[in-house]
Design a binder for these strands. Structure first.
Length: 414
RNA sequence: GCGAAUGUAGCUCAACUGGUUAGAGCACCGGCUUGUGGUGCCGGGGGUUGGGGGUUCAAGUCCCCUCGUUCGCCCCA
């Protein structure tokens, strides 16, 4: 065996940690459900074209981060690097435009060939939502307030801030892009190497540069919001107004941008300073051009995705699992009776564990390790009297109770 | 893809400028306690020091390569 280690950037998620993952995903689904979203599952791999068409040939995701391979039938297949493309594809393929507007929730693993870091894996999980078919800011408001509720219910409200910006409609963006490029072109000699490359590929990104020289240049650059036409401006105003009315706090970050062409109007990110360089915990925006670009009917869309790993890193320990009751048979004869009692209690809804082996001391120790609330001892003495010894694991008090009325005594532990 | 740090027991870490059989705490197993855990005492198992190569009389320690992790950049959730 070459190595038993998992492939770089992948990880085993053991039961304790799984609980956190489940909490994040279930909270997300639960909230989305209340907001009227239905769950959609799309394949975790698609024809490569699905992603190259939606993400554009020049984006980093496509040029260097996709897990792409040829399958045995000769098709080019890619492990999905994000969720929206698959949802959009499924939308078109299933003729879902009949049912607009649509509110969809998804969750599952995504794959990106990147250098792993804290909060960044090659296989990672996302939860996300999309609203399709609503061109007005109502959808933007709903999607963002859903995100806020979700993060609130995870108890993360205090660590996370919402940054919001408008990219404007296609016309406004094109106009701004032109202004920005012509301004920046006058400073080519001073731009950082990275930004120089971004200049023709993705100039808006330069606004976001961390290079000090770039920041100085950008500070005098024409501003995005000055290029917004009337439609775009009122769209954004309506969004901000709606959020305020719902009590959603946000910061208008005029440097927040999205690279791809089909993005428009709303862009937002929920960020934290607790995760080093991977500060973005949930992000999304409006993508009115996407479905049309894929060959479907022109359909407006907006949505977000959140990184489950990053959220679990912020959660810490979290709530304890429900404490079990442990049934402890003493002596071989009690084993089968213990099994009966255990099954009976399980079917009545108790969380019950049965110790398999060892002397009483060992089994008690194990019950303690399991953080049991109570232990039920079944030995020869008990069996002849048809009782069980019920021990409260916190107080240490114990009493014999008849097996018929056992459940009444357990209600406190349920 | 680029730059840097790091890698010793299941976990957290120790081992002076290279120098005998690599230690400790926690965890685990056993005993004190043959039907009673969470505290105590005694004992035990555990490591090709991430892997490979090199320098040296001698390498956990120095050098090279490789793999993993972490941090930053790029990018993103």
């Amino acid at each position: 065996m070459e190595s038993l280690k998992p492939v770089r950037g992948t990880q085993d998620i053991l039961p304790d940690e799984s609980r956190l993952f489940r909490r994040v995903e279930e909270t997300a689904f639960d909230v989305a459900d209340r907001y009227g979203f239905g769950e959609i599952s799309t394949p975790i791999f698609e024809f490569t074209e699905v992603f190259t068409r939606t993400l554009g040939d020049t984006s980093d995701i496509v040029t260097k981060e996709m897990y792409t391979f040829e399958d045995k039938g000769g098709d080019m297949i890619t492990l999905r690097p994000e969720g929206t493309a698959g949802v959009a594809r499924a939308f078109i393929a299933n003729g879902m435009q009949q049912n607009l507007p649509l509110k969809l929730f998804y969750r599952g693993p995504m794959f990106r060939y990147e250098r792993p870091q804290k909060g960044r894996r090659r296989q990672f999980r996302q939860v996300g939502i999309e609203i399709l078919g609503v061109a007005t800011p109502q959808a933007d408001i709903e999607v963002i307030s859903l995100a806020t509720t979700f993060l609130d219910e995870l108890g993360l409200k205090n660590n996370i801030t919402l940054e919001l910006n408008s990219l404007g409609d296609a016309e406004s963006r094109a106009a701004y892009r032109e202004k920005l490029v012509s301004y920046l072109s006058g400073h080519k000699d001073k731009l950082s190497h990275d930004s120089l490359e971004r200049l023709d590929r993705n100039p808006l990104r330069i606004l976001d540069s961390k290079d000090e020289g770039d920041i100085a240049i950008v500070s005098n650059a024409p501003r995005l919001q000055d290029s917004l036409n009337e439609t775009s401006q009122s769209f954004f105003n309506e969004l901000c107004g709606g959020l305020s009315k719902l009590g959603v706090d946000f910061e208008h970050n005029t440097k927040l941008v999205r690279g791809l062409d089909y993005y428009c109007h709303t862009a937002f990110e929920f960020t934290t300073t607790d995760l080093g360089a991977q500060g973005t915990v949930l992000a999304g925006g409006r993508y009115d051009g996407l479905i049309g670009q894929m060959g479907g009917p022109e359909t407006p869309g907006i949505g977000w995705a959140a990184g489950v790993e990053r959220l679990t890193l912020l959660l810490g320990e979290g709530k304890e699992a429900k404490r079990p009751i442990v049934v402890i048979p003493v002596g071989g004869e009690a084993e089968s009776e213990a099994l009966v009692v255990t099954e009976m209690l399980r079917k009545k809804g108790y969380r019950v564990d049965l110790d398999y082996s060892g002397n009483l001391k060992k089994r008690m120790k194990r019950a303690n390790m399991l953080n049991a609330a109570a232990a039920i001892l079944l030995g020869e003495d008990e069996l002849t009297k048809n009782v069980g010894t019920l021990r409260d694991m916190d107080s240490g008090e114990q009493k014999e109770v008849s097996l018929e009325t056992l459940e009444d005594h357990l209600k406190v532990y349920k």
